[in-house]
Design a protein around this nucleic acid. Structure first.
Length: 771
DNA sequence: ACCCTGGAAGTTTTT
DNA sequence: CTTCCAGGGT
């Protein structure tokens, strides 16, 4: 290259050669195959920055991600390069960006622009309602199962009409003794439409329909979005890819599209995702000069971890060839923890966390516990609390799914969209106002007869006087708020409703601990609405981000647990989450727990090859979250629905190469800590398991320390002469200290023991100083 | 119309 | 072990 060549802009200097090529190839179709920790996000962000630096307007860039968090991070990083303009990039989740488009275009397909978004609970409840109305046996027609079937039909572009004609789907339903699923599907769709509501899948499906049937609309967006990027492409479903194609595949299109993905990390097949999309993509764009880049250097993990990951994934057959490597040095070996039961697994993990923290100066935020099912978090929470380790559980119930929060939101939804059936049913008699099941039945009957919305029917049903009065009161609350909708902002409306509906008073009356918690959440919701109103968001020139209630509701409908503002308060905490939720994250130390057959891999997936492969990819995702320390754990028995179950160790454990595994004190053969061996021995003798004893049911040889109040003191509090408490040895006095600062050893006299003098390494021991 | 209670059923993974 | 719901009593 001559010396007159332009030096690449500075932000590109932060990329390696192949990353830079991928970032700079902004014209034409691009496929980036990105292994874990290979700087995928970095490439995407600098690529977008580059696109803008090369002259494109921010709003001409469409970047589709799977989580709000990923989108937010991306925007923040782009902002560092191109400044405030980054705010105008269309970066967000499929669902949120499509909702934004639909907000404008919905009238084209017979929806109001203030349509409601039904979340999973709404969907499930409506399906349940339909099943009840059809007088079907709900133990046969399970709402959840049907919801999944409808969801996957939509994700494969199958309308109710197509469903009815699809022999194989019908046969499957018959086989499952549910021949009427197609009928339920049809009813469900028409009820959603009548309610002016879209479920999560509709946000994609309806947009596709819109693009399909309204050429002038799709044309508008084709012209607008000159650059399209898709993150986590392996997790897109048929429908999502179909929409993306609608946007970039048309005559004379520049086809400036870049998809980034890793087939080995595809973990959402259950939701219709298919790596077939990657293969199709290569085929679809083959004639248009597709460029493929493989990012194979892992900057995240040590060589041991990468080697383990490679070995594990090699058990899967179909995959895009690549060799992930790291130059971070061999690093620590992988530890395996084997315990007798789930309780001990919990304790041992907490134990190991303490040890890691003191030995390697890790902070809580460097540590994560990952499990296959959310239900597993409990035991770990219990022990982390006992050991005084701060943590946060992600997943499970998000803030916006809590009852007290949903109740107020239902009122607000009804104000914005009086046809919203689910919101109506939720609050028509909550708090109790004397409109019971019989009355609601009348409303539903009338609405059905006359084909009018429930809220409309409520006005016209002939009720007894007392009920009529109650109904009028309810109608009044909603309609007064609606009348003020144009003038008042979201907070004013919400505040009024909170008071007038009686929700606030109702919550205030409950003075139990849980009740106060609920009130707190309720207030937090109001505060949240207030800050939504007051917050200065970057003004988007196209889709006016107003402070209206409708906008607020749309925003929160697509938030997950990850996005709640609670998370910001507690910073230095250990992360507990499902493996699915951990995708895209990284931690210094990772614990993958519950590695047993039927749990991880899940029993639901074990009967098919595809299912097993997906579980293995899930395991691959789990172990590649770790930067330096990886611990895998399993237990022989585990409580499920209150009864004990026995499990074999997960097959995945045996797929981890032996040379990556620490073999000294924690090998698979080793039964565990000294403490636990003692416990088990005692159990054998007394017939009492450690589990029972730790619950305080036994009086035998139990330590005199109550583990639930035991709080280990910091090491530097321990001095000669100090009285201390030890979990297993009881009370003692420090007689001597020696060893260097990193390696101090205390001699302690425990008067209750047969052999009272112990020497204890302080960095491992947990001692509580007694005042 | 509302409250209480006993029995049954349920847990993959998520936007 | 929880959560949900139906059915009976008030």
């Amino acid at each position: 290259m001559s010396d007159t060549a332009v030096k690449p802009p500075h932000y590109l200097d932060e990329l390696n050669e192949i990353q830079r090529q991928a970032a700079m190839a902004i014209k034409g179709p691009v496929l980036v195959v990105a292994g874990p920790g290979s700087g995928k996000t970095r490439v995407l962000t600098y690529r977008i920055a580059h696109i803008i630096e090369q002259g494109a307007a921010p709003w001409e860039v469409l970047a589709l991600t799977f989580t709000n968090k990923a989108a937010r991070e991306m925007k923040e990083r782009i902002e560092k390069v191109v400044g405030k303009r980054a705010g105008n990039i269309w970066a967000g989740t499929f669902h949120s960006l499509f909702a934004r488009i639909l907000r404008v275009e919905a009238p084209h397909i017979g929806y109001p622009s203030n349509f409601t978004i039904y979340d999973s609970d709404d969907t499930k409840s409506l399906i349940g309602q339909i099943i009840r109305e059809m007088n079907l046996d709900k133990t046969v027609y399970q709402a959840n199962a049907i919801k999944n079937r409808i969801s996957s039909a939509k994700s494969s572009l199958i309308t109710p009409k197509l469903y009815e004609r699809n022999e194989s789907l019908l046969a499957e339903d018959k086989g499952a003794k549910m021949p009427l699923v197609s009928k339920i599907y049809a009813k469900y769709v028409s009820r959603c439409k009548k309610a002016g509501a879209m479920d999560f899948d509709d946000l994609l499906f309806r947009l596709f329909e819109l693009f399909q049937n309204h050429p002038e609309v799709v044309k508008k967006y084709r012209q607008k979005f000159k650059y399209v990027l898709v993150d986590e492409f392996q997790d897109t479903n048929t429908l999502q890819y179909a929409i993306v194609k609608k946007l970039v595949m048309y005559p004379n299109s520049p086809r400036n599209i870049c998809v980034v993905g890793d087939d080995a990390q595809s973990i959402y097949a259950f939701r219709g995702a298919t790596i077939q999309n990657i293969l199709d993509y290569e085929k679809d764009f083959a004639d248009f000069g597709i460029q493929t880049f493989k990012l194979e250097q892992n900057y995240r993990s040590t060589e041991n971890i990468v080697a383990a990951a490679n070995a594990v994934i090699s058990h899967n057959r179909r995959q895009i060839q690549k060799k992930i490597w790291s130059d971070k040095g061999e690093g620590e070996k992988i530890r395996i923890i084997h315990e007798m039961d789930d309780t001990q697994e919990g304790k041992r993990v907490a134990d190991t966390i303490l040890e890691l923290k003191s030995r390697h100066h890790l902070k809580n935020e460097d540590i994560a516990i990952l499990y296959r099912t959310n239900a597993q978090s409990r035991i770990f929470e219990e022990y982390l609390r006992r050991f005084n380790l701060a943590y946060r559980v992600y997943g499970g119930l998000s803030f916006y799914q809590r009852k007290e929060v949903k109740d107020l939101i239902a009122y607000l939804r009804l104000v914005v969209n009086p046809n919203d059936e689910e919101a109506f049913r939720r609050v028509i008699n909550y708090p109790k106002r004397g409109i019971g099941a019989t009355s609601v039945g009348k409303v539903i009957a009338l609405a059905g007869q006359q084909g009018i919305p429930l809220f409309e029917a409520l006005k016209h049903v002939a009720f007894p006087n007392r009920t009529r009065h109650a109904a009028d009161g309810f109608i009044d609350i909603i309609e007064q708020a609606r009348a003020k909708m144009d003038k008042a902002d979201a907070y004013e409306l919400a505040d009024t409703i909170a008071k007038r509906s009686g929700l606030l008073d109702f919550l205030r009356k409950d003075t139990s601990i849980e009740g106060m918690g609920r009130l707190e959440n309720f207030q937090a919701l109001l505060d949240g609405i207030k800050s939504f109103v007051e917050e200065d968001t970057v003004i988007d020139t196209e889709t006016l981000p107003d402070k209206s209630l409708a906008t607020y509701l749309q925003n929160i409908a697509l938030l997950t647990d990850f996005d709640s503002n609670e998370a910001k308060n507690d910073t230095d905490v250990i992360t507990l989450m499902s493996v699915h939720a951990a995708k895209g994250l990284e931690f210094q130390a990772v614990f993958v727990v519950g590695l047993e057959e039927k749990l991880f891999p899940s029993w639901m997936s074990m009967d098919t090859m595809e299912g097993m492969d997906e579980e293995r990819r899930l395991f691959y995702v789990a172990i590649t979250r770790a930067e330096r320390f990886l611990t895998l754990s399993y237990a022989n028995t585990r409580y499920r629905y209150g009864k004990m179950t026995m499990n074999e160790p997960s097959r995945f454990l045996s797929e981890v190469p032996a040379e990556s595994i620490e073999s000294t004190s924690h090998s698979r053969r080793s039964a565990g800590h000294e403490y636990d061996r003692v416990e088990r021995q005692r159990a054998k003798v007394s017939g009492i398991t450690p589990r029972q004893r730790s619950r305080g049911t036994a009086r035998f040889a139990a330590p005199k320390v109550d583990p639930s109040t035991f709080k280990p003191s910091p090491i530097d509090m321990i001095e000669v002469g100090v009285r201390v408490m030890h979990l297993k040895f009881g009370e003692g006095r420090v007689t001597k200290l020696d060893g260097g600062s990193d390696n101090r050893i205390a001699s302690i006299h425990f008067s209750d023991l047969a052999q009272p003098d112990k020497r204890i390494m302080l960095r491992f021991a947990k001692l509580q100083v007694l005042e």
